[in-house]
Design a protein around this nucleic acid. Structure first.
Length: 259
DNA sequence: ATGCCTTGTGGTACAAGA
């Protein structure tokens, strides 16, 4: 089974590239983030034509997550248990489903904006809710993984120049502690191969030639329980999809499983 | 060339992204 995650930065703007990538990479399951559209506006028919069942969770111009599956799509859950709100809005940032016996969550962790900002505190609270959901669902022998845009670089090596991040989110100790807590519940960081250069970055800013300079970050992660991680036969970042006109600023992360 | 930001919304700019 091939399972992938991709922050598409608007599913409607990315639709031609999304359809092309689904056809060429042929994932059985794709976790999508940053839909930037309502469920009504989601391009369901075009994706269904490629053989995918769709479960989406979007409300409009910000956020939005989905799971596309050719392997079954059961027990869909929208939102985390006790998911915190931001400015009184519980945002569409998490959706779970069971696909061919594999439980997956597609998540778009809040950005945080800057340390000290209310959005940063919200990010940490949100990660606590994610941990509670993981604790409730990742046990037993069923393959389980949280895939998505975590907006956290797990180590200093996961950003192109750590010296530029002294005042920034994505690399702070509390954010990394939240990832460590997820690992302590039994999840493993499934680190993909880089297809070029030495680090498997998944995001490059649109500005300042970040992609040609490989000024990237690894923030799109796959956190898997032992049954999932033990079945991984390969994992890579499809950086080819970051090239050219009309690309998302994130590249897909692809994981192959023996199940 | 992988190439100097992109998106949706609302209105002829702006917030948000990380």
């Amino acid at each position: 089974m091939r399972i992938a995650t991709w922050n598409v930065n608007s599913v409607t703007a990315r639709l031609p590239r999304l359809l092309g990538w689904l056809s060429s990479a042929q994932p059985d399951v794709l976790c999508v983030q940053e839909l930037k559209c309502t469920d009504e506006a989601f391009p369901r028919a075009e994706i269904a034509e490629l053989g995918y069942d769709v479960a989406c969770h979007g409300t409009g111009r910000w956020n939005g997550v989905a799971i596309l599956s050719k392997a079954g799509l059961d027990d869909v859950t929208r939102g985390l248990t006790d998911q915190p709100a931001y400015e009184d809005v519980t945002e569409p940032r998490a959706i779970g489903a069971t696909c061919g016996g594999v439980r997956v969550w597609s998540v778009y962790v809040p950005n945080g904006r800057e340390p000290g900002h209310a959005h940063y505190a919200y990010k940490l609270r949100w990660l606590e809710a994610l941990q509670a959901t993981v604790l409730a669902e990742s046990g037993a022998g069923r393959p389980f993984a949280v895939l998505g845009d975590f907006n956290i670089a797990p180590t200093d090596e996961d950003v192109w120049d750590i010296s530029l991040f002294t005042e920034s989110t994505h690399v702070t100790e509390p954010e990394r502690k939240a990832l460590a807590m997820l690992r302590e519940t039994g999840l493993t960081d499934v680190v993909p191969r880089a297809l070029k250069y030495d680090r498997p970055y998944t995001y490059w800013d649109y500005r300042q030639l970040a992609f040609p300079k490989n000024n990237g970050m690894r923030i799109d992660l796959v956190y898997a329980n032992p049954a999932f991680a033990g079945a991984v036969s390969d994992a890579y970042v499809d950086r080819e999809e970051r090239k050219g006109k009309g690309a998302s600023d994130h590249a897909p992360v692809v994981v192959d499983l023996t199940v």
